[in-house]
Nucleic acid binder design. Structure first.
Lengths: 212, 212
DNA sequence: GTCTATAGAGTGATAGAC
DNA sequence: GTCTATCACTCTATAGAC
């Protein structure tokens, strides 16, 4: 990809994150890149084309992130791996914040993203199942329990920034989102799992309380 | 409030729910109401004025709903009261779905809604605390646990429709949102609480599984 | 109260010179 | 590849007749 194309995409992501997808015009992107509208349109025919390229970028980054991950999830590795995952949600936050508008206007991305979400939830479920096997989590107490939990965990991660924006809470995004995840999981941890989690947070008083 | 004003607000809510707040023009609202743009502007100076009136309507309905509620929450009354609350999220879904765009463009509503959310979370917390007193829920196992849980419950309720739209799942909104709430709470229920919950769902196999 | 007509500022996208 | 100029359109809001 040409340098100009890369610069356009970078400027676009920054602007989208700042003002929201629908509030950024191709004029804004052009001037922020330092080129003319005509030139921008030469590189990307439409605004949708820019979005599609960014989405490809998101998928690529996420895949390379997941492929680099330890296959044996322990409490510690899960804790550490949450960091880059949450980081992606932040880097391309406009996509997750404005997802409803985006899929309304772009059926192609809508479909891709839908299966992507499905994959993510199943990935979480697999980590939970494996944690049962390694004795960090208790077995399901009723059928479907961990499917539900996976779904809620996904919601927590993918809407965390959204709720933070709405409530105008500024705190440490990574830290708080990760705390919320662990607090949700705690009741399902075995004694072994709890002990492992405690080791991670031992330097702190406890898993941080929400700021009410 | 004049009949015309009421008709405008009703048409506006319907259109906002269908197409999303930003995608509805005052022309759309006028023609859907069956009046001219000029006439619409006579009744509401700006699009923001329409939104503010709708927001007032939401608050009024919610207050009258909460004031009519049993003060002694049991598992059964909580279950029943979830229905009208979830119903409100559905009736004014555009507000919750497009909340980010709405607060971006309307600081006044942003501030009101922020304190409103705060109240809701504290209300949930109060219900949990009371449920501990009545023996339906276990005492907190660590400080801040139920504050966290209240927050997550609020997220689940307020983003449920959002995730449903994104994932293009059509199922029964009330039924599924309520199941998600109970599934989140189950690990914290006492034996008494579990028994009471079981009574409610006894005609079903179990609390419904998510559709994967 | 209700209408038509229009101002004025945006938008995405394109034509055509260099 | 890059630019300027412009088309064709949509939007909110208002002016002024009835």
């Amino acid at each position: 990809m040409s340098l100009t194309k890369q610069k356009i995409l970078k400027a676009a992501v920054d602007l989208f994150n700042q003002k929201g997808y629908v509030n950024v015009s191709i004029r804004d992107i052009a001037s922020s890149t330092g080129i003319s509208v005509g030139n921008l349109s030469y590189h990307f025919n439409t605004k949708a084309a820019i979005l599609e390229n960014i989405y490809q970028q998101i998928i690529t980054e996420r895949n390379s992130l997941l492929s680099g991950i330890q296959l044996i999830p322990t409490v510690k590795t899960i804790h550490e791996q949450l960091s880059p995952i949450i980081g992606l949600y932040q880097k391309y936050q406009f996509f997750y914040l404005d997802i409803l508008e985006i899929i309304r206007a772009n059926p192609k991305i809508a479909k891709l993203h839908r299966t992507h979400i499905q994959t993510q939830i199943q990935y979480i479920k697999a980590v939970l199942d494996y944690s049962v096997e390694t004795g960090n989590m208790l077995p399901e107490s009723h059928k479907g329990q961990y499917q539900h939990l996976s779904h809620t965990l996904w919601m927590l991660l993918s809407f965390w920034l959204h709720q933070q924006k709405i409530r105008a809470k500024e705190g440490n995004y990574l830290h708080e989102a990760r705390s919320a995840v662990w607090n949700l999981v705690i009741p399902y941890l075995s004694d072994k799992g709890k002990k492992n989690l405690h080791t991670i947070y031992e330097k702190q008083y406890t898993i941080s309380n929400p700021k009410s």
